[in-house]
Measured scan of single mutants.
Amino acid sequence: LQLFIKTLTGKTSTVEMEPSDTIENLKAKIQDKEGIPPDQQRLIFAGKQLEDGRTLSDYNIQKESTLHLVL
């Protein structure tokens, strides 16, 4: 599924993920695209901070969801 990652600067990146992927996997993919180390990334979806060990489906993240990346 395609996700949009929006940064505080207003920049939006697109990443392709599976519902079974963990937040950790997602942060690794963001690191590949943006060069931001996972330990500096905080991802927010629906007002919640996402935890590394959980999966996208745990948070009911659907295709074309927008996640907010806070550093």
Rank of each mutant, 00 (worst) to 15 (best):
20 S>G: 13
3 L>G: 02
30 I>A: 01
57 S>Y: 08
57 S>W: 07
66 T>V: 14
60 N>Q: 08
3 L>K: 01
57 S>V: 07
3 L>W: 01
18 E>T: 10
8 L>S: 14
57 S>C: 04
71 L>G: 07
24 E>V: 07
29 K>V: 09
8 L>T: 13
58 D>F: 14
36 I>W: 14
60 N>D: 09
42 R>Q: 11
1 L>N: 04
42 R>C: 12
31 Q>E: 10
52 D>L: 06
40 Q>E: 10
31 Q>L: 09
66 T>G: 03
48 K>R: 11
7 T>C: 13
8 L>Q: 12
1 L>T: 04
42 R>P: 00
18 E>Q: 13
18 E>N: 13
39 D>S: 13
11 K>H: 13
51 E>Y: 07
4 F>E: 05
20 S>W: 15
61 I>W: 03
33 K>L: 15
34 E>A: 10
37 P>F: 05
64 E>R: 11
52 D>P: 07
17 M>R: 01
10 G>S: 03
21 D>K: 04
16 E>T: 13
17 M>S: 05
70 V>W: 11
4 F>S: 07
30 I>M: 04
63 K>Q: 14
26 L>W: 00
32 D>E: 14
35 G>Y: 03
54 R>D: 05
54 R>Q: 07
42 R>A: 07
13 S>P: 02
26 L>I: 07
6 K>I: 14
33 K>S: 12
32 D>V: 12
38 P>I: 15
18 E>D: 12
3 L>S: 01
30 I>N: 00
10 G>N: 05
38 P>M: 15
8 L>G: 11
71 L>A: 08
36 I>Q: 03
50 L>G: 00
15 V>Q: 03
7 T>W: 15
36 I>H: 09
64 E>A: 12
71 L>S: 09
6 K>W: 07
67 L>Y: 03
40 Q>N: 09
45 F>N: 02
7 T>R: 12
21 D>L: 03
41 Q>I: 13
19 P>V: 08
56 L>H: 00
15 V>R: 00
8 L>D: 12
9 T>E: 13
45 F>V: 03
44 I>N: 05
13 S>A: 11
15 V>L: 11
68 H>C: 11
11 K>A: 10
8 L>K: 10
60 N>V: 04
46 A>K: 15
19 P>W: 11
44 I>D: 04
43 L>A: 00
38 P>H: 11
8 L>R: 11
68 H>R: 07
13 S>E: 07
66 T>W: 08
28 A>V: 11
62 Q>M: 10
65 S>R: 03
70 V>H: 09
68 H>K: 06
37 P>C: 05
4 F>L: 09
19 P>E: 08
25 N>P: 00
1 L>Q: 03
58 D>E: 11
23 I>L: 04
12 T>F: 11
63 K>P: 15
47 G>S: 04
55 T>L: 10
15 V>Y: 15
42 R>I: 15
15 V>T: 03
47 G>M: 03
54 R>P: 04
36 I>V: 10
18 E>R: 14
46 A>S: 08
3 L>I: 14
60 N>P: 04
8 L>P: 14
69 L>P: 00
27 K>F: 02
24 E>N: 08
53 G>I: 07
16 E>L: 14
11 K>P: 06
13 S>M: 15
38 P>W: 10
68 H>P: 01
67 L>W: 02
33 K>A: 12
15 V>W: 07
